[in-house]
């Protein structure tokens, strides 16, 4: 087995209050250690806000501003400009937000920061719903998924945030998975080497929200990647697509069956989802010129 290739500089402490087995805590550890100590965090209400901890404790070593739900990108812009004014332009300003704060209520501020190409790193921990409020749908929730606000299954598709951001022509967008930590660390490093707006979306299977076993978060994330439901790729300057992994080795069926939120699906529903995933996969391969 390969060793995971990332530094551990104690930027994220044990004793935090994430659910046992949460892949977001694991991802935070890798991301914060890759970025290192010269960083300021921006955390809107989300699981990350809880994981970072209540006053006077903090599980992260960097200073953090806990912002309102919709303004992470605007807050990060303010911090970055302030640092510029003080002659500290090299300090990383990193948003650590959820999908509610990114795909939904925070999209306007993110779009504006991207349009201005603010020099910030924006990480979205995408657990496909408002999991910190007990599991309601967001615009990132996939088709048919049962949530607290879609008890019969969501009727519309997951929003394609990467394509929205690509249309802003920002320098770097990437997707990551907690089952691929070396890749996550490498993408953070790459983002760190680029001036401008960088967005990284990390798929986070939510144990209670998705209805998966406490020890199955990483495995579920791997299945999301292996089935092509959540492909790992990068988009540079909004046009240059690169597949991180350009093969699929399983159908969506096993991934869906693994999760309580999809247990109600009929074979026909699963076929529809498979067709949708196939279309998306071919689209990406085409964009990447494979």
């Amino acid at each position: 087995m390969d060793m995971i290739d990332y530094p551990d500089g104690e930027q994220f402490s044990p004793g935090h209050v994430a659910c046992a087995g949460c892949a977001e805590a694991l991802s935070l550890r890798v991301i914060l250690n890759t970025i290192g100590p010269d960083a300021i965090g921006v955390v809107p209400p989300s699981c990350t806000a809880v994981i970072c901890g209540g006053y006077p404790l903090s599980s992260v070593s960097i200073p953090v501003q806990h912002t309102t739900l919709e303004n992470a990108a605007a807050s990060a812009s303010g911090i970055k400009r302030s640092l510029n004014a003080m002659g500290k332009p090299d300090t990383t300003v990193v948003c650590l937000a959820g999908d509610g704060g990114t795909y939904d209520i925070g999209l306007q501020a993110l779009s504006s920061a991207a349009e201005r190409n603010e020099d910030i790193l924006y990480v979205c921990f995408d657990n496909e719903g408002y999991m910190n409020t007990g599991g309601q749908k967001s615009s990132s929730t996939p088709l048919n998924a049962i949530t607290g606000s879609t008890p019969a299954g969501k009727l519309s598709r997951k929003k394609n945030l990467v394509e929205i951001l690509a249309a802003h022509r920002i320098p770097y967008i990437a997707t990551c998975s907690p089952a691929h930590l070396s890749d996550m660390s490498a993408k953070i490093k790459k983002a760190e080497s680029i001036r401008g707006t960088k967005v990284i979306i990390v798929i986070i299977p939510c144990l209670p929200g998705w209805g998966v076993a406490d020890d199955a978060a990483v495995k579920t994330a791997r299945m999301a990647v292996d089935s092509g439901v959540f492909p790992l790729y990068e988009v540079e300057d909004g046009v240059d697509y690169t597949m991180t992994i350009n093969t699929r080795n399983q159908a969506v069926n096993a991934y869906l069956k693994q999760q309580k939120r999809f247990r109600h699906l009929s074979d026909a529903d699963i076929s529809d989802i498979q067709a949708d995933v196939d279309w998306g996969w071919e689209y990406l391969l085409d964009r990447a010129g494979k």
Partner: peptide, 26 residues
């Protein structure tokens, strides 16, 4: 000064708060 022209007053005030907490006159 660093001037920002965000998409709304909500983001303008958000940036004000963050910049102020970082130690700038805003």
């Amino acid at each position: 000064a660093e001037l920002l022209t965000p998409e709304s007053e909500h983001s303008a005030m958000s940036a004000c708060v963050a910049a102020s907490l970082t130690g700038a006159r805003v």
